[in-house]
Amino acid sequence: MSDNLQNRGQQDRSRINLHEKWEVQYWTKELGVTEEELAKAVEEAGSSSAEAVRQHLRGTRH
């Protein structure tokens, strides 16, 4: 199932899809990180869950 750009409801806000350029742009701005930092955080958090990535980033920033 492909990403429906017309549907930006809760499902899209709760997941980070690194394969969609517009999502990467949104999440880098939202989280205040670079594309590289975002990709690393998604990989290290073990999930594309936005909340898991937020928590991971909080833990890595002192």
Rank of each mutant, 00 (worst) to 15 (best):
A39M: 10
V33H: 00
A41L: 08
N4A: 11
S2K: 08
E37T: 05
I16Q: 02
K40D: 04
L18A: 04
T28L: 06
L18R: 02
W22K: 05
Q6F: 11
W22A: 09
Y26S: 03
S49W: 05
R54W: 07
T34Y: 01
R13K: 06
V42N: 01
G9C: 07
Q11E: 08
G46M: 15
R8D: 03
R15C: 09
H62Y: 07
Q6D: 12
R58W: 09
A50E: 10
E23T: 02
Q11N: 06
Q25L: 14
M1V: 15
L5W: 02
E51G: 05
L31T: 04
D3R: 08
R15E: 13
V42W: 00
K29I: 03
S47Y: 12
R61W: 09
G32N: 08
R61K: 15
A39N: 11
S14W: 01
G59Q: 14
K29F: 02
N4G: 03
T28C: 15
E37Q: 15
S14I: 07
W27L: 00
A39T: 15
V42A: 03
K40L: 13
E36F: 06
H56Q: 06
E51R: 15
E37R: 03
E36G: 14
D12P: 00
G59L: 08
A52S: 10
W27E: 01
R61I: 09
K21T: 10
A45N: 13
G59I: 04
Q6P: 00
Q25Y: 06
H19K: 11
R8W: 04
N4D: 14
R13M: 08
Y26W: 11
S49H: 07
R61V: 14
L57W: 04
H62E: 09
E23Q: 15
R54L: 06
G59S: 12
D3I: 09
N17Q: 08
E23A: 12
A41G: 09
A52I: 03
V33Q: 01
A41V: 12
H19P: 00
E44L: 13
M1R: 12
M1L: 14
W27Y: 14
G46F: 14
D12G: 03
H62W: 10
R58E: 15
T28Q: 08
R15H: 12
E43K: 15
E43Q: 15
V33E: 01
R13G: 05
E37F: 01
G59C: 05
I16F: 03
D3E: 11
Q6L: 11
E44N: 14
L5E: 05
V42M: 04
Q55I: 09
N7H: 12
E23K: 11
G9I: 02
G59A: 11
R13P: 01
R58G: 02
R54A: 10
S48T: 13
G32L: 02
D12R: 08
Q25M: 12
R58Q: 14
R54E: 14
E51T: 12
Q6Y: 09
E37C: 02
R58L: 11
